[in-house]
Design a protein around this nucleic acid. Structure first.
Length: 730
DNA sequence: GGCGACGCAGTTTTT
DNA sequence: CTGCGTCGCC
């Protein structure tokens, strides 16, 4: 039995080969709860994969008894590949997925227990917002006065805490948005229910719901998942915590891996206390710290250690490596974003000059908007680059449209998706007609698609036929015709699905719906691009068909809607400088890293600066950024930067002050000259605007200028030492 | 019902 | 500055 699930050549020694003592202990501690505090770059993926291999090889655990939850699909895939390499094809029977994918898998099987059809669709972020908007309109709420995104946010936060519409706190009188969110939450859930749809947060919530109300189902999964692993445990939210708690309750074989210092998703409901409380939840837990880092030089690690020591809410650990000190960290004081970009380009070229490649270099920033200045400069300098995240393939309109068609074809109740494409291409179904269709459908308790089916169809005389005739009349001939045709197209397509691969079916959808034709007739470059993107989608389906022999359209949709931005990238094969947010960089590593905009109000971000938790999370983020670097780290900040068209001046980030000076090598822009103050010099102040120096007193740090501003601020006395003053040419 | 032109607003991180 | 949404006009 012991060897039953193994490829013959594997031995225990191979599994623990090359591991350090802590790693080895983590691999071999298989029974009972285990807490692995894994520092950045400490080889935790290696530990996880080998632990799984060890369970199979040494303990004779069946692959289907193992569950491994990762944060992204990419991490799951990587783990899958690595386990596969260790143990061979039995790896396919192990559940190695994200929380969301695992829940989809469970719900597809068990949906009927909780009154859900297994064909349910998953709303993406856009769908969610449009559904929220619809609900708000139903409640006669002014979309301009109340931000649908804020409402969506509140609802999502509630779901992450497993709060149902009925338990939603309505807030005080002054917190109108809370009361609104509570109201909208009811309507929103009703709308999702009738569309047989779930949003991201529901996937977890409903699975917990399922387990809590159907103990027999829970028991099945408890028995199935005898060994549970959760990666990035510091980023779990209450709902995920509950889910894991339920599953692990029977076996108590729960292995969590994480790093409190890399907790960066509090804003999304992640709760670091879950990780800090693991030992309270599981008093018998074994605790292992992985502190040896295999990624970075000690200079980089010492900087990271020093920085993170300023946080209170953490588990102490100190990273070290056997790599030696390496280069100092470069800190560059730029004049502005353009100058900052020029610095990056010069450094990248220097790296190339030394025989390095573009792909070794990565630019990290706090906010997506910062990428633009760098991008422009790269373009001008002819530096190849690739932006990860931001507007991605799946965000494109044409892709979303096609996906909406597919969603409706899988789940005809999906009103949200149908409304997206009901008039794309044009079918003479405008706002008025859609309203009438919707009203009719809701009144008769039909889906819109069914309502459209009643148009122009011969029916037995009676009240039903009369109502249908009335609807047809009220729509007008053109709209009625459009609706009837769309109904026929969709029913026709649904009938043809049998036996076709996803690719073949999508091809059919593209022609039958007239979607491809809509762009094919156009000569606009934009439209030609859209056609190319559609073709690209077909390459995606082809690869899906190849990978998943009997994969259904529903599987394809689940898979694509659960992809994250980093998942969506084809891989870092292009020889280009990569650019991404710090968040997107988690789990990755690069030889040369540039962290830009290391300034107050940007990093830490202004919106996180008013609370201790906020600043600590920003510091975690900075820690993540620093620990991405293997060999060389560059930090930079700007003396002035333009944001929304106007110039602002930020102080260098407090995080820079927290790094030991001895590890740093500071330089600053040639453009940033020290001004020789004198009467008559024109200056600009971040708040008061431009003015002229009219007098000066004192010297050195005590030097004080009298400045007459052009604005209503009049004359002020300011010390240049304490004020951000910029000298104007004239 | 569709298109264009304004004006306006909003700017962190995303499974 | 740019992208978005709404409004007004054809």
């Amino acid at each position: 039995m012991t060897q039953a699930f193994l490829t013959p050549q594997i031995s225990i020694d191979t599994i623990t080969d090359g591991l350090n003592p802590e790693q080895k202990r983590a691999v071999e501690t298989t029974q009972g709860p285990l807490f692995i505090l894994a520092g950045a770059g400490s080889g935790k993926t290696s530990v996880m994969t080998r632990r799984i291999a060890y369970l199979l090889a040494k303990e004779g655990v069946a692959p289907w008894n193992i569950l491994a939850i990762t944060f992204t699909n990419k991490a799951a895939r990587e783990m899958n590949d690595r386990v596969q390499k260790l143990v061979g094809d039995v790896a396919q029977d192990i559940w190695m997925t994200t929380f969301h994918s695992a829940c989809v898998k469970i719900l597809r099987r068990e949906a009927e227990h909780i009154g859900l059809a297994h064909t349910f669709t998953i709303l993406d972020a856009d769908d969610q917002i449009s559904a929220i908007k619809q609900c708000m309109l139903d409640l006669n709420l002014d979309l301009k006065k109340f931000d649908p995104a804020a409402v969506q946010w509140k609802i999502s936060a509630a779901k992450n805490e497993l709060i149902s519409p009925f338990d939603m706190p309505r807030g005080g009188k002054k917190n109108l948005i809370d009361a609104i969110a509570a109201d909208v939450y009811h309507g929103y859930q009703a709308r999702l229910k009738s569309a047989n749809a779930l949003d991201f947060d529901d996937l977890i919530f409903k699975t917990v719901d399922l387990f809590e109300h159907h103990p027999e189902v829970l028991e099945t999964y408890q028995q199935k998942f005898k060994y549970i692993h959760v990666d990035e445990y510091q980023d779990t939210n209450r709902a995920q915590y509950k889910l894991i708690g339920l599953l692990a309750k029977a076996s108590r074989n729960l292995c969590v891996v994480g790093d409190t210092d890399q907790a960066i998703y509090r804003w999304r409901g992640a709760d670091i206390s879950i990780m800090l409380n693991f030992e309270r939840d599981f008093p018998e837990a074994a605790v292992i710290k992985l502190e040896q880092n295999y990624r970075s030089t000690n200079t980089i690690l010492d900087a990271a250690n020093a920085l993170i020591r300023n946080n209170e809410n953490r588990k102490d650990k100190t990273l070290w490596s056997a790599k030696g000190a390496g280069d100092k960290i470069s800190v560059y004081a730029a004049l502005d974003q353009t100058d900052e970009a020029v610095y990056i380009i010069a450094s990248v070229q220097e790296h190339i000059g030394k025989g390095g490649a573009f792909r070794d270099c990565t630019v990290l920033y706090r906010a997506n908007a910062q990428s633009r200045a760098v991008e422009d400069a790269f373009l001008q300098a002819g530096i190849p680059y690739k932006i990860i995240g931001g507007m991605t393939f799946y965000d494109r309109r044409e892709i979303k449209d096609v996906m909406a068609y597919l969603k409706v074809l899988v789940n005809p109740e999906d009103e949200i998706s149908l409304l997206r494409v009901i008039n794309v291409p044009k079918r003479n179904l405008g706002e008025g007609s859609i309203r009438r269709l919707l009203d009719f459908a809701h009144e008769k308790d039909l889906s819109i698609l069914e309502a459209m089916g009643r148009i122009g169809q011969p029916q037995a005389p009676g009240p039903e036929a009369d109502a249908a005739a009335e609807l047809t009349a009220s729509l007008g001939a053109k709209a009625a015709d459009g609706a009837a045709k769309l109904y026929q197209i969709m029913t026709g397509l649904r009938a043809m699905q049998e036996g076709l691969t996803v690719t073949e079916f999508v091809q059919l959808v593209l022609t039958r719906t007239g979607y491809r034709e809509m762009y094919a007739g156009s000569h606009k470059e934009e439209d030609q691009n859209r056609l190319e993107n559609i073709d690209e989608l077909l390459t995606v389906t082809r690869s899906f068909d190849r990978r998943r022999r009997h994969g259904t359209l529903a599987d394809f949709l689940s898979e694509t809607s659960l992809l994250s931005d980093t998942d969506k990238e084809s891989g870092a094969k292009d020889n280009a400088v990569h650019m991404m947010t710090v968040h997107a960089s988690k789990g990755l590593e690069f030889p040369v890293v540039f962290v830009i905009g290391v300034e107050e109000t940007l990093f830490p971000h202004a919106r996180s600066m008013d609370s201790l938790e906020g600043v600590e999370e920003e510091r975690n983020l900075c820690y993540v950024a620093i620990t991405r670097a293997q060999e060389k780290l560059h930090l930079s900040y700007c003396f002035e930067r333009s944001l929304f068209g106007q110039t602002q001046m930020n102080d260098p980030s407090r995080f820079l002050d927290e790094l030991p000076k001895g590890l740093l090598e500071a330089s600053k822009s040639d453009l940033q000259i020290v001004p020789r103050w004198d009467v008559g010099i024109h200056v600009r102040h971040p708040q008061f605007g431009s003015g002229v120096v009219t007098d000066l007193t004192g010297e050195g740090d005590e030097l004080e200028l009298e400045i007459t501003f052009a604005s209503r601020h009049g004359t002020k006395k300011l010390k240049p030492k304490l004020t951000k003053l910029r000298v104007l040419d004239k």
